[in-house]
Simulated assay, not measured.
Amino acid sequence: MGKNVLIVDDAAFMRMMIKDILGKNGYNVVGEAENGAIAVQKFEELNPDLVIMDITMPEMDGIDAVREIRSKDSNANIIMCSAMGQQAMVIESIQAGAKDFIVKPFQADRVIEAVNKVIG
C-alpha cells in the first residue's frame, strides 16, 4: 500500500504538480491545504505519513505550521518546499522539525528522493 501524503501550498498549480509526481510514484495524496492553519487541521484529521509544506503562505506560514504539527505529533514527517535563495528559512524549518526540504521549481526525481529518504 502506498504511503499517504498531505500537500500544503497556497498555489493550486504547485499542489497539482506535487500530486502528479507522487501519484506516478505510488504515493496517495490524501489531502491538500492552502495555508498552515488548514494544514494543521487536516494533519489531525487525516494523520498522513508525510506532509509536504510550502514555507511562504498566508494566514499561517509553513514554519509555524511545522511547529504546531510537531507539538501534536513529535514523529510527524514533514518536508519543506522553498523557492531559491531562502536558505535562512530552510534552516529555520529544519530547526522547527522538518526532515528535509526541496527547492522550487521542483525536479520530480528530487521530490521522490526526499520522500523516499523521509518515509521510504
Rank of each mutant, 00 (worst) to 15 (best):
M1L: 13
M1T: 14
G2R: 09
V5F: 01
L6A: 12
D10M: 02
D10I: 02
A11K: 05
F13Y: 07
R15I: 02
R15F: 00
M16L: 13
K19L: 05
L22T: 02
K24R: 15
Y27C: 08
Y27W: 09
N28Q: 12
N28I: 12
V29H: 03
E34Q: 00
N35S: 08
A37I: 08
A39T: 10
A39F: 13
A39V: 09
A39N: 05
A39S: 06
Q41L: 10
P48F: 07
V51S: 11
I52T: 14
M53I: 01
D54M: 01
E59R: 08
E59N: 05
M60D: 07
M60T: 03
D61C: 01
D61V: 07
D61N: 15
V66G: 00
R67Q: 14
D73Q: 11
N75G: 14
A76I: 05
N77V: 05
I78W: 00
I78E: 03
M80R: 06
A83M: 11
A83G: 15
M84I: 14
A88S: 14
A88V: 13
G97C: 03
A98M: 03
D100H: 13
D100A: 15
D100P: 04
F101R: 09
V103A: 11
V103R: 09
K104W: 08
P105S: 12
P105W: 13
Q107P: 07
A108H: 03
D109V: 11
V111S: 08
V115A: 07
V118N: 04
I119C: 11
I119S: 11
